[in-house]
Computed example of a mutant assay.
Amino acid sequence: MGRAFSENEKELIKKRLIETAKIAFEEMPYQSVKVESLAKKVGISKGAFYRFFPSKESLFLDVLIRIEQEIQKDIITKLTAHASLKEQLIDILFSTMMLFEKSYIFKAFSDVQIQTALLEKATDEQREQMLRADQQLLSMLVSETVGFKVPREVALDMMRSVFFIAPYKTQLESNFEVFMLSYITAIIEGIIIEGTPALMPKESEK
C-alpha cells in the first residue's frame, strides 16, 4: 500500500494531474497518453493515480469539461465584439470548429469508439456537467426565436451540422478552412434575419 497523502497534497496532486493531462491530451492522440506517464510526470506511482481518478477515461472527461468551460467564457467575451448576430454566430462557429480541428482532445471525442468507451466510464456527475454545458451554450446562442427565419429547432440542427463534417473532410476537394467558413456563412445567412442585433452577455456573465 502506498503512503498516505495529506488533504493538501491530494489537492495539489489532482490539480497537477489535470494540468499535465490537459497538455498531453491536446498534443497527442488519446491512445498515446498513458496513465503511467502522467503519474510519473507528477511524481506519483501508477497505482497512486487511481486514488485520484478511477480511470484514464474519467480524467479525460474531467479535462474536456474544463476546456468546454474555458471555450464558453471565450464565446461570452466575443458576444460584445460584433455589430450583428450574423457576424457573431459565424465567428463563434468557425473559430470553435478550427479549435476542434487543431486539438487532439476534441478529435478523440469525435471518434465513435473512443466516445463510447469514455461515456461508459463517465460518472453521473460528469454526464450531467457535459449535458449542462451544452444546454447553457445553446441556450445562450439560440434561446430567442426573434431574428430567425426558421423555427428554433431547425436553426439549432443546422448549426449542429457544422460539427458533423470534420470526420469526412478527406472527401472534400476544396480547402477545409475555406469550405467551413463558406458553409457556416451559408447556414447563418439562411437562418438569421438581416439586421438582427448582436447578442449581449447577461450581467451575471460579464
Rank of each mutant, 00 (worst) to 15 (best):
F5S: 06
E7D: 13
E7I: 14
E7G: 14
E7H: 11
N8I: 10
E9K: 11
E9M: 06
K14S: 09
K14M: 02
K15P: 02
K15W: 02
L17V: 00
I18K: 00
I18H: 01
E19C: 10
T20Q: 11
A21H: 01
A21M: 12
A21V: 03
I23N: 11
A24I: 08
A24K: 01
A24D: 02
F25R: 01
E26W: 00
E26C: 02
M28Q: 12
P29W: 01
Y30N: 05
Y30C: 09
Y30T: 03
Q31V: 09
K34N: 05
V35K: 05
S37F: 07
A39Q: 14
K40F: 12
K41Q: 08
K41V: 15
V42E: 07
V42W: 11
V42T: 15
I44P: 09
S45W: 14
G47D: 14
A48M: 09
Y50N: 01
Y50C: 13
Y50T: 09
R51E: 08
F53I: 09
F53T: 13
P54Y: 05
K56A: 10
E57Q: 02
L59A: 00
F60T: 10
F60P: 03
L61I: 09
D62L: 07
V63W: 05
I65P: 14
I65Y: 13
R66E: 11
R66L: 07
R66A: 08
R66P: 07
I67K: 12
I67D: 14
I67R: 09
Q69P: 01
Q69W: 10
Q69F: 03
E70C: 04
Q72E: 06
Q72I: 05
K73C: 10
K73M: 11
K73E: 15
D74L: 05
I75V: 15
I75H: 04
L79Q: 03
T80V: 08
A83S: 03
A83I: 00
S84M: 00
L85R: 11
L85D: 01
K86G: 14
K86V: 00
I90Q: 03
I90L: 09
I90S: 00
I92A: 05
I92T: 02
L93W: 02
L93V: 04
L93H: 00
F94M: 01
F94P: 01
T96G: 04
T96Q: 13
M97R: 13
M97K: 07
M98Q: 15
L99I: 06
L99G: 12
F100V: 13
E101P: 01
K102I: 00
S103A: 02
S103P: 06
K107D: 10
A108Q: 04
F109Y: 14
F109G: 03
S110F: 12
S110R: 01
V112H: 12
V112F: 07
I114W: 13
Q115I: 08
Q115A: 08
A117Q: 12
A117G: 05
L118E: 04
L119A: 13
E120L: 08
T123A: 09
E125R: 06
R127I: 13
L131S: 04
